[in-house]
Simulated assay, not measured.
Amino acid sequence: MADHRIFTTSFASVYPHYVAKAERKGRTKAEVDDIIRWLTGYSQKRLDQQIAARTDFKDFFGDAPAMNIARDQIKGVVCGVRVEEIAEPLMREIRYLDKLIDELAKGKAMEKILRTPAS
């Protein structure tokens, strides 16, 4: 598969859209950051550095310290495509993030978004 345009797009250029989408629905930037950190393993400091450096999506996910092993539990449709059926690994990671932000904007509880097991 030829590289999709999103792969070379800076994460920093899309991040404000994630935050705006969440805030329009009464959620917070902190919750968006929690989701990104859960998915990628970045600390807040490293996440902020990636944003400041305008790292592209390919390197943002490629450099992620520890992609969450529970991310394969993320199911559903984003942009008309089932995320669990996306064959291209990087595109699947990007769509996982999109799906998590969608869930946040739809009012889903953070425990469910972060796939926290019930106690």
Rank of each mutant, 00 (worst) to 15 (best):
C79M: 08
M1F: 12
E111I: 11
D59L: 14
A53K: 13
I35M: 03
A105D: 07
V78H: 03
M1W: 00
A105S: 15
A52Y: 01
A118W: 06
D48V: 14
M110T: 14
A66F: 02
S43W: 04
P65A: 12
T40H: 10
F60P: 03
S119M: 06
T9N: 13
Y42K: 12
V14Y: 02
S43T: 15
N68M: 03
D59T: 03
S10M: 02
V77W: 04
G80Q: 02
E111S: 14
R82W: 09
V78S: 06
I6C: 01
V19A: 05
T116W: 02
Y15T: 00
V14K: 07
E103T: 10
F60L: 06
C79L: 12
M110P: 09
P89N: 12
R24C: 05
D56Y: 06
A105T: 05
I101D: 03
A66N: 15
F60G: 01
Y42M: 01
K75V: 10
Y96W: 14
Y96P: 07
K108Q: 13
P65D: 07
Q49A: 15
A22V: 09
G76P: 11
D56W: 01
D72A: 06
V32C: 05
L104E: 01
I69Q: 13
I94L: 12
A105F: 01
V78C: 07
A87F: 13
E88V: 12
M110H: 07
R115W: 03
I6Q: 09
L104W: 01
R37S: 06
D59V: 11
A52K: 15
T28Q: 02
V81T: 13
F61Q: 00
L39F: 04
D3Y: 13
A70N: 12
R115H: 14
H4Y: 12
K58P: 03
S43K: 06
